[in-house]
Design a binder for these strands. Sequence first.
DNA 1: AAAAAAATGTGATTCAAATCACAAGTTAAC
DNA 2: GTTAACTTGTGATTTGAATCACATTTTTTT
Lengths: 226, 226
Amino acid sequence: MAKHNCTDCKIRSVAENFLSNDEFGSLESNSAEVSFKKGEIIIKQNALSLNVVYLRSGLVKIHMAGPAKEKILRLVKAPSYLGIPTTLGNKINNYSVTALQDTSVCFIDANFFKMLIAGNGQFASEIILELCKNELFDQQRTVNQEQKQLPGRIADTFLCMSERLFDNDEFEVPLSRNELADLIGTTRESLSRVLGQFCKENIISLDGKIMKIIDRPKLQQICDLG
Amino acid sequence: MAKHNCTDCKIRSVAENFLSNDEFGSLESNSAEVSFKKGEIIIKQNALSLNVVYLRSGLVKIHMAGPAKEKILRLVKAPSYLGIPTTLGNKINNYSVTALQDTSVCFIDANFFKMLIAGNGQFASEIILELCKNELFDQQRTVNQEQKQLPGRIADTFLCMSERLFDNDEFEVPLSRNELADLIGTTRESLSRVLGQFCKENIISLDGKIMKIIDRPKLQQICDLG
DNA sequence: AAAAAAATGTGATTCAAATCACAAGTTAAC
DNA sequence: GTTAACTTGTGATTTGAATCACATTTTTTT
């Protein structure tokens, strides 16, 4: 694998803080740093899952082919691990991961990652914590998606982007309208209509992909009332 | 806590096989065995999450109050841990767990459980594996639920019950029609109509809650085509 | 055993969102 | 710089499933 230096890596995961010097040394020889351009596939659905991926910088989408069309499960920004569930839980990848911006990742050999976990409970604890939080988040999202109607789901999605990804009232939506629909669980046309409505009511403003939340309380209200 | 004996427990979890004698001893003094009757609440949403629960025998539903109504997230049969995500990932319970049959569980002190994980990577590995598999299962279910229409979702649910819970073509649905609707993500009325249709087409037969799959290939086909 | 409460099935109606259809705008290719 | 390919917005129509309404059956309580 490519020569690189993990010990001095400035972008450590929380879990990595619990690794010993020895473990860091082994990590170096069992991982490889790779760059991806926007649009490139980092993890491919149905391929063998041989690596856990550590996302060092950038933004990605986790997505899978559903029975009828593509579904975007989640957007993930650095720093974060990618593919742990599918790499540890299945031989082949249940989902794809694609870069939404230029990103830098480290591929970590799956067996080595398993060894790290088995040999270091504190490291494992942090991995478990991340998995637990993701499960809670996904459950909440599943219920919202199922019980809220479209305007509520769209409001929810934008608030989430603003708060969790960009920490800003104004941001560039990192998805096409079609992708945004795949994330929200609707169609491009229906999304477009609601977006138009939100603009007309001065809740948000849109200029292409640049999105600004103008009336956050109103948007929150639409989110809450479903 | 109640006096009981973990070392000789016949119903160990896979993870527990990796515990040392010492760890088993501590587990005994940090856990309590409790029985629940059908309908009783084992974990209560919004209460403080102070325990991980090990389900020794019986069947439970994991459910939460959504924005509009109750949602059943999953049915779980023994042996399995319950509440790990919410106990490790949040101070209060994100969801409830209710017994669908008479069940026996062990409450395990959350801090002790965290210590077990941090101190024993192999134990942690097994917990991680369970969390990973659950996440994959939930993701698949989320996409199916969103993209399949009602008959497909209902077929999916019955096939899943038959294969994963009862391992039989004939079984007693452990839920009321209302609960079944909350699991599938529909209403009692819509569910009832599709059920009537399935019976009329001789795909299943229903006598109250006793359900028999007559034409499995047809049911699978409805599931697959959505 | 009678009465009350809860669960279930079924028809009529409504509605949110998907689908269909097409125009306009934007980006990429030659 | 012109053509082609893709993306986006918007109106008209259709439709799957929710809602409403009520009868019937089953279960629980007294």
